[in-house]
Design a protein around this nucleic acid. Sequence first.
DNA 1: GTAATCGTAACTGTTGCGATTACCAATCAG
DNA 2: CTGATTGGTAATCGCAACAGTTACGATTAC
Lengths: 143, 143
Amino acid sequence: MSDSQKFPVAAHALAYLAHKNATSPEHAISSAELAASMPTNPVVVRRVTAMLARAGLIDTRAGAGGGAWLKRPPGEIGLDQVLRAVHGCTHLGVPPPGAAGCPVGERIPVAVGAAIVAADQAAAARLAGITVADLLSTDPEKL
Amino acid sequence: MSDSQKFPVAAHALAYLAHKNATSPEHAISSAELAASMPTNPVVVRRVTAMLARAGLIDTRAGAGGGAWLKRPPGEIGLDQVLRAVHGCTHLGVPPPGAAGCPVGERIPVAVGAAIVAADQAAAARLAGITVADLLSTDPEKL
DNA sequence: GTAATCGTAACTGTTGCGATTACCAATCAG
DNA sequence: CTGATTGGTAATCGCAACAGTTACGATTAC
């Protein structure tokens, strides 16, 4: 896989919604406004917000005055949920298949893969200790 | 950045060297043999072994009978050192620059970047608890 | 109805990567 | 010394993934 910017965009969007107190349909923020705050393209934002909506972190509504708003309090949204919502992982690579026929050569990739999974879980656990609300705190408590 | 396979290749190469007890110049393993065990291309292996040599984890020698061998015991090579040797990171993306002029919009990317660094460090700390020797153990103790 | 907005598809240009080829330097065998 | 083997590195190719953009249908407020 490649260097996707989905996670940073998602985290930024959620933090922006929290900052604007967008917690109900009448305070929805449009993809254009979110995009302007990054800055990036509204379509890029909508691609991410659609995934966040599917994960149940936000809701969106089409039409005039539509946009996105938070479905849960910012302090209850861990960044690990954000990472999962955008299908992110730590991307340390995929183990090579290993030479067929060599009993040791076939076992090494399994061990390497397990190490990558362990590192991935450790990163997710660390992100679970940071919430969207933490992204707005002025002093770097948990960061 | 993209989904680089350098880390899995490096870990596999080190584990293979450990399995072959390649710990001195006279037991050097050629890039061709390492490549055959993945399988991949010898040049890809040499690109990685050159980085591992620069990091002091292995030594290499050119010429007939040359190749690579471990410079340190497998149990003393943590996978975090391997990751650093190949300049790896968790690749969660780079925070967007943020809209200039907005005090909050400019602070969010900093916080997001700090969260990414925290996740990166957590993954490295987890990898530090796994050594090349662990990759060869038959039972999944630390994996 | 009109305007605004989301969701999604299609397309483009760029970037990064693995693989391959090629060449030079280094090393050993004879 | 000569030749064969091997690592290091550069150049190149083809592929895949991504951000950005345009476009269009569907939905909603006024």
